[in-house]
Write a protein that binds this DNA or RNA. Sequence first.
DNA 1: ATAGGGTTAG
Length: 772
Amino acid sequence: MDFNRLFHLSTKTHIAKRLHALLVVSGEAHNIFFSTRLVNLYANLGDIALSRQAFDLIPTKNIFSWNSMISSFVKNGCFQNAIHCYYQLLTTRVRPDFFTFPVVLKACGCLSDGKKIHSWVFKMGFCLDLFVAASLIHMYSRFALVGDARNVFDEMITRDLGSWNAMISGFCQNGKAAEALDVFREMCIEGVKMDSVTVSSILPVCAPLNDLVTGMLIHVYVIKHGLAFDVYVSNALLNMYAKFGSLELARKVFDQMLVRDLVSWNSLIAAYEQNHDPITALGYFIEMKQKGFQPDVLTLVSLASIVSQSGNVRNSRSVHCFIMKRGFIAEDIFVGNAVVDMYAKLGNIDYARKVFEAMDAKDVISWNSLITCYTQNSLASEAMEIYNTMRGREKIVPDQGTLVSILPAYSHVGALQQGMKIHGFTIKVGLQADIYVGTCLIDVYAKCGRLNDAMLLFGHVPRRSSVPWNAIIAGHGIHGHGEKSLYLFEQMQEEGVKPDHVTFVSVLSACSHAGLVDRGQQCFKLMRDKYFIEPGLKHYGCMVDLLGRAGQLEMAYEFIKNMHVRPDASVWGALLGACRIHGNVELGTIVSDRLFEVDSENVGYYVLLSNIYANVGKWEGVDKVRSLAKNRGLKKTPGWSSIEVNNRVDVFYTANRSHPQSEAIYKELKVLMDKMKNIGYVPDYSFVLQDVEEDEKEQILSSHSERLAIAYGIITTPPKATIHIFKNLRVCGDCHNATKYISKITEREIVVRDSNRFHHFKDGDCSCGDYW
DNA sequence: ATAGGGTTAG
């Protein structure tokens, strides 16, 4: 009986079992050669239980048997068992050898017992063995101990290709691209030729180093030496081209592959997904499934992003189900985070929250994703709440992404003191020079009325990218310092920083707030002629606002008619606002018709129109708007105002009575109202759309959120202290007027930042005059 | 009969 031949033919578990039985029958089961081969055979077929059984039945085990058992465990991912088996071996009289250590070290690399083994290996003097040394280098690298890895590498007397590869990949996988290339060059100098393993380790660092040339030279080498047939090599090439955005080349590499695996498909799908082509990516996903490949976690991460990019809410649900069915959300943090992010981008906050809650393990990115979900959907209080909960978790340390996600929430509600705390934190953890964190802080300071501090910070942030410039230009803009914005814009160009579309939004709105009509028009022209940026809706909105505020209503109207994209509600809304300022009823009526075509649900626009009619005494117009508003199911964006007192941000919603100091607030408002009326305040009821009696209208006006916040400020801060208020919508015209009176009565400066700009109230007047 | 170094992510 030729058992060797039978071993060779056993390609399925049931055949292996027959062979096993045959060995028992023919009395060969105790033969140490055959029984050890059985251990390996079962392991290679993926049946670790049978492999172990076969091992246990070996009466006197030699080092071959032990090595086979340990490596069987490792091959099947049972690292703990492998190490346990190794310790068992140490209790016997059999001694481990050169073959034992590489496998054990591999198991250690996947667990956490590295140091211990290291000292042991050195004691035994086995380190001189090439295979052991390579395993050690690899293991240290896995624990991010590249220094130790390098020491082992340097102490080696002879090196083979495997040693070089282990060191290079060790550096690559720890993000030490430059060091990796150094070792690589050293290897070339010593005349060692790279193989497919070298190539697939080194290719992934080309993109982070922004070195496409090296990547392409390696590609040439690959073709010349026939390495392209290796899946690892081709996959690495595909990924490299994808990271450089060269989709055609990535696609070409994929097309020329003879064998493709799951990684190839995942890489191709991710390539298109990350270069913002979700449609093509989805096509490849479908093709991949048709070819019989089962998607894994990485496929699903891309898929989630594909769905959110294409904005398809229905698909998002089926992706969610698909992932849930396989239990991936609980198991895999990456997938869970990707799904949270998907729902966040689709604006489905409840689902994002639910998925977040359902995750077994959460890391910083999970928290960041949820915080971003809230900030991007303008829910600052919720974002702050989540951030505070996160800070309560010991194991989670905020990173750059956390700060970038929470700071906009602070800007949004004017939480200056909270923002300053983060500023301190950035200095502590060495993030003060980060462009993105720095820019968010500039925005916080600017939006909290601290322009000087914003400028100071701007001086310390690297400014070779447009990002911090955009923030500081916009910061001056909302304070009405248009000239300063334009000056910074000039300076930016002089320093050779290229403005982007965000820059122009900042510049144009700065011009419109400061009434710089000519300069604004020049900038608009510059944007297209010099920088070849096609204006978007926001740029058009700024221009309409700019012309409209300046009284050029017809010109603004013409401007809209000549737009290259369909005007949205904000563009028409800007013109309607201008009609109100300049009391143009005829154009206002026309504009409102067009406006309600694109957005008939926003109650603010009805208020604006009713206002236009009321100002010229056209009461039938007011009635018409009122019934129009009543007949349509209006979506009312809840108005809120916030104020920060003693490190705490309080948010007031209109007519809210749930605040602990509610009673005192309403009492204060009553007192104020009487005093205001005595010195000439008359409520303007055209800001109330509800069809109710006059005294009730007065009640509605004086429970607007901005007044609640101001009253709260008055009763909680020392006399004559400046009050800072933040409102999410535009300040109501009647409240604007009332605040002037309040500033006079209380002898306080009141600073109100609304969705549009800053209003400084002082001594019965406002910095913006009667604009609101 | 047994051994090292490789490609994809939020």
